[in-house]
Amino acid sequence: MQTKVENNKAWFLVLPVFLIVAFSAIIPLMTVVNYSVQDIFDPYTRYFVGTEWFKQVMLDSRLHEALLRQFIYSFTILIIEVPLGICVALMMPTKGRGASLALILVAIPLLIPWNVVGTIWQIFGRADIGLFGAFMSSIGVDYNYASDPTDAWLTVVLMDVWHWTPLVALLCYSGLRAIPEVYYQAARIDQASRWAVFRYIQLPKLTNVLIIGVLLRFMDSFMIYTEPFVLTGGGPGSSTTFLSQSLVQQAIGQFDLGPAAAFSLVYFLIILLVCWVFYTTIMNMQKDK
């Protein structure tokens, strides 16, 4: 590591970034804090209510249900996407034209606007005009994501796997490319099996990118809004209503500013807390090795 020079004038270089992010982050966050402790009837009539909204939100059964659904959902997709992503990365060619072609093809789902992802699956899953829906009915499964909660749930998970496995795969792929050829030569000389190469050479080298992959996927799946909104609208019932959706319903739909603001803060803190727990456990596990 190169040593860095101590120089407080460097603040001038960081200042533009600070201002622009503060404008979009601190002012809105303060507005949310402000709302969360007031009862607002119209712009001129408002009362200070202290922590009342927080109490209400913490005891709200809808929030508890959405939170539970959210956790089950996030863990489900992590369990599927991480191993699948590693497999895809291992299968991708490393050299030549095939490598760039595979890279571009695998990355396509990441570049599709999120509501179009929802639209694609909305069409694809319908039994009358979609291939997947038609396929499911032709093999005798009574599949309808718009009316059956289990089917809706499965479709949302499938959509997320389709959409975000490429991210895990690309992260792992670049991690794999950073492994020097000598390691593989040594393994060949030792006549190591394919599994041993994976377990003792590739997997340890992938730890860092995997940590980032897991964190990113966890964070992003915790914020998911657009795709399920387009696909199922949170239904049927509230079987696919996750935290963001619940929040938007409250803030925009019912215009309950106070409770919605309290909800936002609790939501943000949950994300920060869970990410921190994730991060420290993984880091400690690494230290113990």
């Binding site: 603040w11 982050a25 914020m223 963001s244 803030a251 920060l272």
Partner: peptide, 25 residues
């Protein structure tokens, strides 16, 4: 420089904020 690490982490923490939280503000 003073506060460089805090600044860096503060920047990154914005990546974790759900857009739905900031919608109305």
């Amino acid at each position: 420089f003073i506060g460089d690490k805090h600044m860096f982490f503060w920047l990154l923490s914005n990546r974790m904020a759900p857009p739905a939280v900031f919608l109305l503000p």
